[in-house]
Measured scan of single mutants.
Amino acid sequence: MEVRTIKVFTTVDNINLHTQVVDMSMTYGQQFGPTYLDGADVTKIKPHNSHEGKTFYVLPNDDTLRVEAFEYYHTTDPSFLGRYMSALNHTKKWKYPQVNGLTSIKWADNNCYLATALLTLQQIELKFNPPALQDAYYRARAGEAANFCALILAYCNKTVGELGDVRETMSYLFQHANLDSCKRVLNVVCKTCGQQQTTLKGVEAVMYMGTLSYEQFKKGVQIPCTCGKQATKYLVQQESPFVMMSAPPAQYELKHGTFTCASEYTGNYQCGHYKHITSKETLYCIDGALLTKSSEYKGPITDVFYKENSYTTTIK
């Protein structure tokens, strides 16, 4: 009895394709271990004539594949690729409408935090270190965002349907971005203890939790000093293409032309909904596939993004 075979390709990165001759009487799992086709788990399936010449994702289970996976995804987590594939199996079914010149995501599976993050990423200057993220990001900007969303979920250790947080998501993504040249110098002034300067680099240099107003941050924000008295913390120097200011959701007025974009969060910790506000020729609110415009805006804002380049204080 002759062994019926077909020729397929296996890959971990969709760049390096490895030619395989597979036995049609055995499952993919018996031949390769966990195997995925377009995100779908085909591990328990036997090869079919229609699979001839198709590319299958496999887990990096030998040295060659491990090197290829690390170079593309910059992670050695053995569960990463499987999590990416199972997320992709959902995100490829989502709709990605162009809204006001940006790629958004039609609401499904509690994905409003991903839509808000995706919209924000198209408006701030950011370059990702893992080629996987950078490639998928370019495709997302062009309207094909399924891979990018699935990668975000995998890097953030999230599953489809789980509630997510924009600030946490951005923080994970910033860790995989090139923020080497970003720098922030802060000064804390206390009447009792004097003053202390701190220099922050990388992710810490672009994120701040405690106030939404970048102007206020430049002037000074009140913080408790270690001595128990009130101290003032203010920005001395900022070198970065953008800054992200966050605070627990509270009524906040966004003035046209003073910011790049913002995240609105309605609801409580267990259950809520994100919308995205962007400042173009007027203010726009993007909620999944829905767009509304207004000249002014007041609502429960939790993150505001500002364009920056270089700032030095005039406070002496």
Rank of each mutant, 00 (worst) to 15 (best):
L37A: 12
N157D: 10
Y306P: 03
Y137K: 03
L102G: 08
E215P: 01
H74V: 01
Y72W: 11
K298G: 00
P97H: 09
Q196W: 10
Y214F: 07
T76W: 10
A108P: 05
Y274G: 05
S104H: 06
Y138K: 15
G82F: 15
F70M: 14
T5H: 14
E162L: 02
Y297Q: 02
D135P: 04
I105D: 00
A205Y: 00
S263A: 14
F174P: 07
V22S: 09
G143V: 03
T11F: 07
V166F: 04
A115L: 06
L173I: 14
D38S: 11
Q197G: 05
S50P: 09
Y36E: 11
L283W: 06
C227G: 01
K233V: 14
F32N: 09
L153T: 04
S181Y: 11
Q270L: 12
K293G: 06
K106I: 09
G101A: 01
E144K: 13
I315H: 15
D287V: 04
A108F: 05
K183Q: 00
R184S: 15
L118M: 07
I6W: 04
G39R: 07
I152R: 06
C285N: 10
E239Y: 03
L290H: 15
C112W: 02
Y274D: 06
M245Q: 04
P78F: 06
V99A: 08
V236N: 00
K191W: 01
I124A: 07
T302V: 10
P249A: 03
E144Q: 07
D77G: 06
C149I: 11
T232L: 11
G101T: 03
S79G: 13
I286C: 09
Q30V: 11
P300G: 08
G288C: 02
Q134I: 01
E168M: 07
T27Q: 09
I152L: 09
K106E: 15
D287Q: 04
C225H: 04
S25K: 07
Y265R: 00
K201D: 04
M209P: 08
Y234H: 07
L254Q: 12
D38W: 12
T27C: 13
D41P: 11
I105R: 05
P60K: 08
L163I: 09
I124K: 03
Y172N: 15
G272Q: 10
A289F: 01
R139G: 09
V8E: 06
K229L: 10
D63T: 10
L37H: 14
S213D: 12
K219W: 07
A154V: 07
S25D: 11
F217L: 15
Q123H: 02
G39D: 10
T11E: 07
Y214P: 06
L200F: 12
Q230M: 15
W107L: 04
Q98S: 11
S279P: 06
G29C: 03
V3M: 11
G143M: 05
L119Q: 04
P241V: 00
A69D: 10
N147A: 11
F217W: 01
N147V: 09
Q251G: 03
F56S: 02
S246G: 06
M244C: 05
T292V: 10
C182D: 15
P300D: 12
E264H: 00
G39K: 05
Q222M: 11
W107H: 08
F148I: 07
P34W: 15
Y214S: 00
L81S: 09
G299D: 00
M85W: 13
N129G: 08
E144V: 04
D77T: 05
T19M: 11
N147R: 09
S246D: 05
H74Q: 08
Q237D: 04
S240G: 03
F9I: 08
H256V: 15
G228K: 07
G267I: 04
P248H: 06
D23Y: 13
I315Y: 15
H74T: 04
E215A: 09
N147M: 09
C193Y: 06
I301Y: 01
F242I: 01
M26C: 15
K201N: 11
A205C: 02
P34K: 14
Y172S: 12
F32R: 13
A145M: 02
Q175H: 12
P78R: 14
K54V: 11
T19R: 11
I124Y: 07
A154W: 05
I286H: 02
N61Q: 14
V12F: 08
P130L: 03
S50F: 11
K44L: 13
V166L: 05
T266E: 04
G299E: 00
T120S: 12
L173W: 02
E296Q: 13
H18D: 09
C285V: 15
